[in-house]
Computed example of a mutant assay.
Amino acid sequence: MNPPFDHRYLDELMERAGLDALMVTSKHNVQYLLGGHRFFFFDYMDAIGVSRYLPTLVYVRGELDATRYIGNAMESWQLDNDPVWVSDLDTSTWRAQDAIELALAHVRRVLPGQAVVGIEGSFLPVEAYQRLAADPSVTLRDGQFVLERLRAVKRVDELKLLEEASDAIVDSMRTTFGVHGPGSTKREIVQTLRQEQTRRGMTFEYCLVSMGASHNRAPSNASWAPGEVLCLDSGGNLGGYIGDLARMAVLGEPDAELEDLLAEVEAVQLAAREPIADGVVGQAIFDRAGEVLATSPHRAVSTFVAHGMGLISHEAPRLTSTGPVPYPNYDGPRALAAGMVLSIETTMLHPRRGFIKLEDTVTVTADGHRAFGDRARGWNVVDLAAARV
């Protein structure tokens, strides 16, 4: 079986970083390198007994056949049903330290002498890291950046999952808006959205929900009143890929002020899309959005951000170092590439009308861009006579 990723490009990235091998321990990167495999038993949690599940894939630069995957003692059932391309499999572990010990032994065997190994520091338990750091035969360096670069441009099958996830989230929001009305609470609305996403084959991850004049986005027993706005900002997972969009509703017909406020947000969103294309520098998105935002009467309470999307939220391309999630602005001065996927979002924290936001998922194409789930972007009007669920 052939690997589902460009292993020659991975070898190139590793050579640039000075890595002889990668020791991959995050569930999302293991899933990517194995072509979709994610052990069902630990899909939602990692803890087991006194340790944790630690899927570990060892990839040796330039030696595809030396790849080894180390999994849990029950994982062979799933691998029997859905084989992966890696032939060297060890499904005997329960503890993180056992998995890392086997991975280390494999590195010593295929790379005798000194080896430079890239690790995912943010996804490596202390007990596993300490064992690696104590071994004089390996020099540890960051491997997370290399893996993020490998995932930055999405394959056709990945784009399909992201589009389906985005469509399902928007459809779930529209259904949720349609079955709630006066008196519905934030908790009830989020629960409906969870059920709707699940019904569409997704794994519900979160919903940031705001209602009325409040900027609080946590579920609560606050109830929806006539004339109030409702913002749903939700992430749903389909096959490991995350859709993340935000849409607005209002209980009763929106007044002129609400129409104007959402139009301001929409203007920034559409402006941000204009420069998106293969070869365009990432900063151009922020420059164009900033031009329009500067003309907004509510610019003092409005913000714009764009970030990469895929197996995790906020991945490559990294386009800003001043957004809500902190990381270096690596891609801002660099060209976008066809196949990259972006989330673009404009937020207004109006002091009287509340939290007004649109968030869209856009993919870079060879001749421009294309938006996923690109509907229900105006005010979704909920009938005041709607029955409360």
Score class of each variant (00 low, 15 high):
27 K>G: 02
240 G>F: 12
367 D>F: 01
200 R>Y: 13
217 R>H: 07
374 D>A: 15
341 V>N: 03
56 T>A: 15
101 E>Y: 09
348 M>R: 06
282 G>C: 10
279 G>R: 07
357 K>Y: 02
241 Y>R: 05
77 W>I: 03
106 H>L: 08
341 V>L: 12
105 A>S: 14
74 M>A: 09
106 H>W: 08
132 L>M: 13
256 A>F: 09
246 A>K: 07
302 S>Q: 02
129 Y>R: 05
117 V>S: 11
372 F>P: 14
338 A>C: 11
263 A>G: 06
63 E>I: 00
211 M>F: 11
11 D>G: 06
369 H>C: 15
78 Q>R: 07
273 R>V: 03
167 D>N: 12
273 R>S: 13
143 G>I: 04
83 P>L: 00
242 I>D: 13
111 L>Y: 07
116 V>H: 03
68 R>E: 03
201 G>A: 00
211 M>L: 15
207 C>V: 00
384 L>Y: 10
126 V>W: 15
127 E>G: 04
319 L>M: 09
284 A>W: 11
343 S>I: 12
171 D>V: 06
385 A>Y: 04
214 S>I: 00
168 A>C: 02
163 E>I: 08
165 A>T: 13
171 D>K: 05
9 Y>A: 05
71 G>M: 11
361 T>I: 10
297 P>I: 04
369 H>Y: 15
244 D>A: 14
129 Y>M: 07
178 G>T: 05
160 K>Q: 14
358 L>N: 01
255 D>M: 05
80 D>R: 12
50 V>E: 11
272 A>Q: 11
144 Q>P: 02
76 S>Y: 02
50 V>N: 03
323 G>I: 08
257 E>W: 00
50 V>T: 05
225 A>Y: 08
6 D>W: 04
257 E>N: 01
281 V>G: 08
115 A>Q: 05
294 A>L: 01
102 L>G: 13
203 T>W: 12
374 D>K: 13
198 T>L: 11
104 L>G: 00
102 L>C: 10
147 L>T: 03
29 N>I: 00
376 A>T: 00
171 D>N: 07
63 E>F: 10
67 T>N: 00
32 Y>W: 00
85 W>I: 06
28 H>W: 14
250 V>E: 06
174 R>H: 10
387 A>L: 13
327 Y>L: 08
12 E>M: 03
12 E>S: 03
44 Y>E: 15
128 A>Y: 05
71 G>V: 06
58 V>K: 11
348 M>Q: 02
330 Y>D: 01
73 A>Y: 08
74 M>P: 00
369 H>M: 14
137 S>I: 12
51 S>K: 05
65 D>Y: 11
181 G>N: 11
203 T>L: 15
73 A>G: 02
192 T>V: 14
380 N>K: 08
168 A>I: 08
291 E>M: 08
52 R>F: 10
234 S>F: 04
105 A>E: 15
104 L>F: 07
110 V>E: 13
369 H>A: 15
253 E>I: 11
339 G>R: 09
228 E>P: 02
78 Q>W: 02
90 D>R: 15
